[in-house]
């Protein structure tokens, strides 16, 4: 395994065998996290079609180590792809809370970003999924093309690489900070 990082020099250089490497914890953990993002399959509307296309052979997000996972317990990334109704928002919040940390949220498309075409007359639509869960990356479009989704995933990978695992100066990526929905709404 060869990782980018500062070269190891000094007295210990060359003292150990080939089986030992030196690096820092942040780099290894962040590298491992960003390279196996397992998205929870959360297709809610037409954006899900583009999300499926991104997972298919033509765009193939398996290149990023992404495997769609049908359970929140074993997924790292929630791709909210589509219109979040108020009825679904309570379920979405519960599924998000079932995910193990670290967990990330990618809001895909206009509806999940800010309500989209339902911003005024949608009596049933949540005006942005960031009303109920903290969002790390917003992907604009109606719906976004698979390239845009993959670009959003790459942006998330960049953010993960900047995360400080042991010395957090501010709320980490994927924490519960920012969620606003009243607790009694989740029954």
């Amino acid at each position: 395994m060869i990782l980018p990082g500062p070269p190891v020099t000094g007295p210990i250089q060359g003292k150990f065998g080939d089986g030992l490497i030196f690096t820092n914890v942040d780099l290894v953990l962040n590298w491992a996290r960003k390279s196996s993002l397992w998205p929870m399959t959360f297709g809610l509307a037409c954006c899900a079609i583009e999300m499926m296309a991104a997972g298919g052979t033509r765009f193939d997000w398996d290149r990023f180590g992404m495997i769609p996972r049908g359970t929140p317990r074993q997924s790292d990334l929630m791709i909210v792809a589509g219109t979040v109704t108020l009825k679904m928002a309570t379920r979405l919040k519960r599924l998000y809370e079932q995910m193990a940390e670290p967990k990330y949220v990618l809001s895909m498309g206009s509806c999940a970003n800010n309500g989209g075409p339902y911003w005024r007359h949608g009596y049933h639509v949540l005006k942005g999924v960031d009303e109920v869960v903290p969002v790390d990356v917003y992907v604009p479009g109606c719906p976004p093309r698979p390239e845009a989704l993959l670009y959003g995933v790459m942006k998330l990978q960049e953010m993960i690489m900047e995360d400080r695992v042991l010395r957090r100066r501010q709320p980490s990526l994927g924490s519960l900070a920012g969620a606003q929905m009243a607790p009694e709404a989740v029954k």
């Binding site: 075409p117 911003w119 005006k127 942005g128 929905m181 009243a182 709404a185």
Partner: peptide, 25 residues
């Protein structure tokens, strides 16, 4: 509705002023 805003949120005006395109067509 259950603690979630149904009408357009105040943040949407700020995001609109910041240049985000909200709504479709």
């Amino acid at each position: 509705y259950n603690g979630m805003r149904v009408k357009p949120t105040p943040q949407m005006a700020e995001r609109y002023a910041a240049g985000e395109k909200i709504g479709v067509g």
